[in-house]
Write a protein that binds this DNA or RNA. Structure first.
Length: 455
RNA sequence: GUGAUUGUAGCUCAGUUGGUUAGAGCGCCAGAUUGUGGCUCUGGAGGUCGCGAGUUCGAGUCUCGUCUUUCACCCCA
């Protein structure tokens, strides 16, 4: 037996069937992106660490994969500094590059670096893997794919509306019923301000974001720990749990924020987005969820998150607006908004709900049995004829027992086997067997393309 | 990073208080069937029991370490 081989923790191989399913997801997503005028870009797997560090918080820095410098990576380090006490400093001396952690920060770098070539507003999509040195668990990998779609250089809320349309269309196309949740950071900031908790906005949002997962009581405890008064906590929890129609919620929030400028701004933004949606309603359910916060610190306006309605798995798409993402790279006042589709989780949902179409199972329509010699020549000619008509087919590469060739077709889920043996060669008819039904037919050689055209 | 958990054939898993040569199902290969797959029957190949140390007359089984799997927390898609 061969030596034991394996792949790193949290990474995966994808076999042919898995790849066909994944490509089905990617192809559908790309198609919708293209229809809305978004253009593809790619960035390198590795970035300079200076680009990545400090963008995802302290926690994020720890989860970055770092790439050891080539050659003598110790040469910059004074001998007496080789201690585990200053790992941060050591690693910055030994590593200049790291694997990208998401697609948004590299995109910001891309925009700043190429600002003179870019036609703003810039609508781009990017489908690539990202890496996080997290400990793997359910639905969490160290290497996974993100499908980002962003528009940068336009602060119009029409962009938010368009992203909602894209989300709606993608999930309709894939057959997944979803609930689209929207909220606004400014509303959360307004709430924090009313509670006198503006300095604790981030911890507060992280806490209320968990209410659905850990329940009201646990959320209450976390909020109390932040230092919010008990009476305020109760009213906050009531507030974020409000349901009702979107219209009612907006009316209520306007009253709630009477004199609070930032809060009112947030409500006005929500209202504007909803007014666009009313011009061309989306099919999936959309709701305002005030408990929606999302972790990433760079969001400043709209926040969007999508959950599967019929499958328990966390969010399968999410994003929001960031007013100053490129600011950290020296390009001020460029607003962007975007969402990211979680391909790996979408895959799990579709597999769980059996939503992949049947054609994905079989990649090849016809297998020509190999009898060698003259028969093979005919097979080559006929197979090319099929391919010209866009029908996928293949010829078994060797003349072996029929049994073996049929088993190959069966295992590969090929629907038809074309047989040209001695009898068929003489009569110029090929014998076509349907492996699903077991029936066989004799077809003249020159009718092969028409025969398969609509099957 | 914290706390659990898993590891035996290609895959899914049995394996008794520690006791001869470690098993099953599925898959694979061959034959029954040299022009027909799936179904059936017969036979066969395939194992450093994750790795390393220890206890013991004797370890798949017990102890420790290490790696790996899965799960929860933190955080996140």
């Amino acid at each position: 037996m061969a030596v034991n081989v394996s792949i790193p923790k949290g990474t995966r191989d994808f076999g042919p069937l898995e790849m066909r399913r994944r490509n089905y997801i990617f192809d559908n997503i790309k198609e919708i992106f293209n229809l809305h005028g978004y253009l593809p870009i790619e960035t390198p797997a590795m970035e300079n660490l200076s680009t990545l560090l400090g963008k995802y918080g302290e926690e994020g820095d720890k989860l970055l994969f770092r790439i050891l410098n080539s050659g003598d990576f110790t040469k910059e380090i004074p001998k007496n500094e080789f201690t585990s006490e200053n790992l941060t400093k050591l690693s910055s001396l030994m590593c200049e590059k790291g694997l990208r952690y998401d697609l948004t920060v590299p995109f910001a770098r891309f925009v700043v670096q190429h600002r003179n070539e870019i036609n703003f507003p810039f609508k781009r999509y990017q489908i690539q893997p990202v890496w996080r040195a997290d400990r793997p668990q359910k639905g969490r990998y160290r290497e996974f794919f993100q499908c980002d779609v962003d528009v940068i250089g336009s602060d119009s809320l029409f962009n938010e509306y368009e992203l909602l349309q894209i989300i709606d269309k993608v999930f309709q196309k894939l057959g997944i019923n979803v609930i689209i949740k929207i909220n606004n950071r400014k509303i959360l900031a307004g709430i924090a301000a009313r509670l006198g908790m503006s300095d604790n906005l981030i911890p507060m949002t992280i806490a209320i974001d968990k209410i659905e997962k850990i329940g009201r009581e646990n959320t209450k405890n976390e909020l109390l720990q932040i230092g919010i008064q008990e009476a305020d906590v109760e009213s906050l929890l009531d507030l974020i749990s409000t349901t009702g129609s979107i219209k009612d919620q907006i009316v209520f929030l306007k009253k709630y924020f009477k004199d609070n400028e930032i809060g009112l701004k947030g409500v006005a933004e929500l209202e504007e987005i909803i007014s666009y949606v009313e011009m061309n309603p989306i099919k999936n359910k959309i709701e305002i969820d005030l408990s929606l916060a999302r972790g990433l610190n760079y969001y400043t306006g709209s926040i969007i998150e999508v959950k599967a309605a019929d499958f328990q798995i966390g969010s399968i798409c999410g994003g929001g607006r960031y007013d100053d993402l490129t600011g950290i790279f020296g390009l001020k006042d460029v607003s962007g908004v975007g969402v990211s589709f979680g391909a790996d989780r979408i895959y799990d949902v579709m597999l769980g709900l059996n939503l992949f179409p049947e054609f994905i199972e079989s990649a090849v329509k016809v297998l020509f049995v190999n009898f060698g010699n003259d028969s093979l020549k005919t097979c080559i000619a006929l197979s090319e004829k099929l391919r010209k008509n866009n029908i996928s087919c293949e010829i078994y590469p060797q003349n072996t027992k029929l049994d073996k060739q049929f088993k190959y077709a069966n295992a590969k889920n090929i629907e038809y086997v074309a047989i040209i043996g001695e009898y068929e060669f003489q009569s110029k008819n090929l014998n076509i067997k349907n492996l699903h039904t077991g029936t066989q037919e004799q077809i003249p050689f020159d009718e092969i393309a028409t025969y398969f055209k609509n099957r």
